[in-house]
Amino acid sequence: MGNLLEVNDLTIKFRTAKATSTAVRNVSFSLEAGETLCIVGESGSGKSITSLSLMGLLPENGEVSNGSIRLNGEELVGKTEEELRKIRGNEISMIFQEPMTALNPVFTVGYQIQEPLRIHKRMSKQEATVKSVELLKQVGIPNPKEKIHQYPHELSGGMRQRVMIAMALACEPSLLIADEPTTALDVTIQAQILDIMDDLKEEFGMGVVFVTHDMGVVAEIADRVMVMYAGDVIEVNDVQTLFEDPKHPYTKGLLGAVPNVDDETQEMKVIPGSMPSMEDDIPGCRFHPRCPMAMDICKEKKPALIDVGKENAAVRCWLQEVDTNADTTIAASGGFENVLSD
């Protein structure tokens, strides 16, 4: 029995006016059913792009240029649009950040929840109506029978996000992707939404990929954490180990950072400096210009993602390599990187 989701060596490129740039590099991770993996990192690190690629919903100028995405062993990269469409909202669902704009303003809440049921489960209108009322009840919306006739603008942000969740869970997907679903909500509502998602994950036995930049949210819901920086995975570990013993200086910085509640756009800014854009060609480790511990080698050679002790735990940092078996890993990873950096 393999993993629910298996992502290997995923590389995503964008064609822009100037050139083709790589937004996400050689990302690998896996997810079991019933597990929550948090992807964290500052804005622009490639979290959304990674999660959209799982749905096959990259922007038009983007493409998966390398790697594989397997859901229950089935390869998704290279599937036709029509094949992917049958998977979306059915086996994989996604919840987005902006509850205010993510629902269609001209259709009722009921219509929008019933849509995936009618498409994928081929339910009749009556069946879908009954099911949508049930779903709204499950996500804790009062008076669901009346709510299905309302339009999104008649609901609060928190209620809309519950509707989004109900919609995503309609077809009982095995994988739920949530891209900062609580970032736009205030703290009490955020806690409620996280609770609901956690409960429903148990109930439906889903795997969850949860994107956030808020370490508080990570602490609350993650089983495992993947830290991304400028398109690279730089650390992966289970949530407890990551919080107790972060290895990468960037992860340490994130954990020291408190998100600014007054200004949502200003994400974690405690680490001095700002993230390079994907066009910037940075030799060596992409974090070295901001790293308080940077050594000479960090400016020259990119470190590999190396295992730290147990399975599914790794860090991409020269400090780690120096700590462990320096000679062999440096040689090996140097060769490894040369092959990949085309």
Binding site: L57, R88, G89, M94, A102, M164
Partner: peptide, 10 residues
């Protein structure tokens, strides 16, 4: 965003 949501629903 809501068009992206519609696509995400299949």
């Amino acid at each position: 965003d809501y068009i992206r949501t519609a696509k995400a629903k299949g």
